[in-house]
Amino acid sequence: MSENPVPDNLPTEDDDARLSRRRVIGTGAAIGGAAIGGALAATVGGSARAEQTSATPAADSNTKLDTDAHLFRLTSAEPDRYDGGTLRGAHEGTFPVLTGQQASVYFVELEVGAIREPHWHPTAWELNYIISGKADWTILGTHPDGTYRNDAFAAKQGDLVFVPQGFFHYFGNASTEQPLQVLVVFNTSAQEPNDDIGIVATVNSLPREILAAAFGVPVSAFGAVPTEVKPVVITRRK
């Protein structure tokens, strides 16, 4: 005997009733299919719009590469002047074709006895080409073996110097007779002052008692340290 016998007294469904039931089921399926299709279309369309939106900056950059001027007369640009030399820059603000390209270039000229303040760049490496003159370099690196890597050397005309991102470094004019000219290339669109942390700013970011504890000297030892912080410092040896 079947566990779930079909009752004998079920009402008989005539042809009209069956047709009506099929129409209702068919309509429901169509509505459900339309809803799912609409949701999929909205999702795909939304994704496409999102992709188009996210691609807009790249498209704008590519357009600029086609339409903006490709020539910038770097050494003829008006320089920023400092006590020990000058700085000229080609970046998004002065050379629009670089917009979105993660690149900027600077022409640095140090007079005899001048130095570029010890500093580092948090978001960029730099590649330096010595155009003329002779430079003293110091680059302070990390210490995976327990000791700091302090690389000090002289670079002359025609030499390349690479400074990794975030490494503390300095360079100065080593000649007693002629200016030092250096071309500096960065892998960032940020202007030089916006990605530059100098040693004076570093010292002034810390309380004097913390500095004294770190150096093992009296707080008064830092009394002569200037409190004015400048974005870029090119000065002379004292």
Rank of each mutant, 00 (worst) to 15 (best):
T188Y: 07
G198F: 00
S175Y: 13
I115D: 04
G146T: 14
R149E: 15
S175W: 11
L160M: 08
D145K: 14
S205H: 15
S132Y: 11
D136V: 04
W137Y: 15
I130D: 05
A114P: 02
W125K: 10
L127Y: 11
S189M: 09
G113T: 03
Q165P: 03
L140N: 05
A135K: 02
H121T: 00
I115S: 05
G158Y: 08
P193N: 12
Q181I: 04
P164R: 08
A174Q: 14
T176S: 12
R149I: 09
V112I: 09
L160N: 06
Q157C: 08
A152K: 11
W137L: 03
S175C: 11
A152G: 12
V200H: 06
L110Q: 06
E126Q: 14
P144R: 00
W137R: 00
S132W: 12
H119F: 08
L160P: 01
H119D: 05
D151N: 13
N173A: 08
Q178C: 01
Y170Q: 14
A114T: 02
V112S: 08
A124T: 04
A135D: 00
T202E: 12
Q178A: 12
S189N: 12
P144S: 06
E126N: 10
F186E: 03
V112M: 01
P122W: 03
T123R: 15
H119I: 03
N150D: 15
I197M: 03
P164D: 14
A154T: 14
L183P: 00
D151K: 04
I131P: 02
L206G: 06
D136P: 01
T142I: 13
Q181E: 14
D159V: 03
K134L: 14
I197L: 13
A135S: 12
I199F: 08
D136A: 08
Q181L: 08
L127F: 11
I131R: 03
W137S: 01
V163H: 09
A152C: 09
N128M: 10
E117K: 00
Q157I: 00
D195L: 05
H143C: 07
D145Y: 13
P122K: 04
I197S: 05
E117D: 07
D159I: 05
P118M: 07
N150Y: 13
W125P: 02
F186K: 07
I199S: 12
A154Q: 12
S189L: 01
I130F: 04
P179A: 09
V184D: 05
F167C: 07
H121R: 04
A201Q: 08
Y148T: 08
V182E: 01
G172C: 04
G113D: 09
G146C: 10
S205W: 13
S189P: 05
N173D: 09
V184Q: 08
Q181T: 01
F171K: 03
Q178G: 06
L160Q: 02
V182D: 00
Y129L: 00
T202A: 15
H169L: 00
P144Q: 00
K156A: 14
F171V: 02
K156G: 15
P164Y: 11
L160I: 06
N128G: 06
I197E: 04
Y148N: 10
G133F: 02
H121N: 06
N204F: 08
